Simulated scan of single mutants.
Amino acid sequence: MLLGQLLAQYEEELIAVGEEAESLSFAYRALKNWTFTDFVLALQKEVEAEDQALLQSIFEQLKYHVPAQYIIGSAEFCGHVFTVDERVLIPRPETEELVTLILEENSRESLRVLDIGTGSGAIAISLALARPNWQVQASDVSEEALELAQANAQELEAVVSFKTSDVLDELEGLYDLIVSNPPYISRDDIEEVGANVLASEPHLALFADRDGYAIYEKIAQQAPSVLTPDGKIYLEISYKQGKKVKELFQEAFPNKRVRVLKDQFGQDRMVVVDNGSI
């Protein structure tokens, strides 16, 4: 059977169970280490037994809602390749927008930065690589996630320090910039979560108590004592949390500006706390 024919059969079955058909060829190409041209040229060739077995393995995992990034063991973020597995969330494109915003708005040579709930380390490591003079600290309540984040930092040669902490409970000192993409999904919104996310990604990093606001509330409570006078906070939020999160941080920082910013799709996605000047 030709590769294109076999892919078409599998893709039809994936669509039937609610998975994206493109995930199959994406994972297959990555595991074969093929360019797109390699892939296109192979579509009209007979599939050898070894490749049939590989495609079958990928298909079975996708069918049971294992994300393609877990199958290949990596995800690209801000131009870097991060190892990912079931210990951490897969970094999302909208979080790249948060990193880009931070870099655009902060040009100072030396900043002390804290990334709360670092997961794979994607935010902290990307910032450290882009701004080598920044002192970047990353924390997470999950020791398993921190193990993976440390491995990513080592692989990418990023200077980041890591510490186990529930928000700021175990952290000391002052920070010029606090960033967090925390768990923010309410358990009442579980139906909005994709099947592959729900089946495979860590729920500790997805869901938060108090209708999804618990971690924001804790950051708002603890941050005033550790943020420098000119310090800033950058948060990723759900598309429907902008008003509430803005109110939380405006109350915690009455003398600062609190902005709700949209992502490339026009959805509320970031909350920024600063002194009103970029």
Rank of each mutant, 00 (worst) to 15 (best):
D115N: 12
E97W: 00
G231C: 06
L174F: 14
L129K: 10
I125A: 11
R87M: 09
H203R: 03
Q52C: 06
P224T: 14
V136T: 04
P182T: 01
V179M: 04
S126T: 07
N181K: 05
L62I: 04
S126Q: 09
G117N: 08
R29C: 05
S25H: 00
T100H: 05
N275D: 11
W34R: 04
T83I: 10
K45V: 06
N152Y: 14
L168S: 13
A16T: 00
E19Q: 15
Q222A: 13
D230S: 15
Q56E: 15
F59W: 10
R92M: 03
I102M: 00
S186R: 06
Y70M: 10
E22M: 06
L2G: 05
A214W: 01
E76M: 07
I90L: 10
E60I: 10
N255Q: 15
E20V: 01
R257L: 04
P224L: 10
I125V: 07
P182I: 01
Y216E: 06
P91R: 10
F207T: 04
D169M: 12
G117K: 06
V260T: 11
G73A: 07
G119C: 13
K246W: 08
P93W: 00
Q9H: 15
W134V: 02
I125N: 08
G173F: 04
L14C: 09
A30H: 12
F207G: 03
I237N: 00
Q150G: 02
Q56I: 06
G117Y: 07
E109V: 02
E76Q: 05
V66F: 06
G119T: 07
L198W: 15
V81A: 03
L248C: 12
L6V: 15
F26T: 13
F59Y: 14
L261Q: 08
Q135V: 03
L227F: 12
G4I: 13
E172I: 11
Q137F: 03
E144H: 06
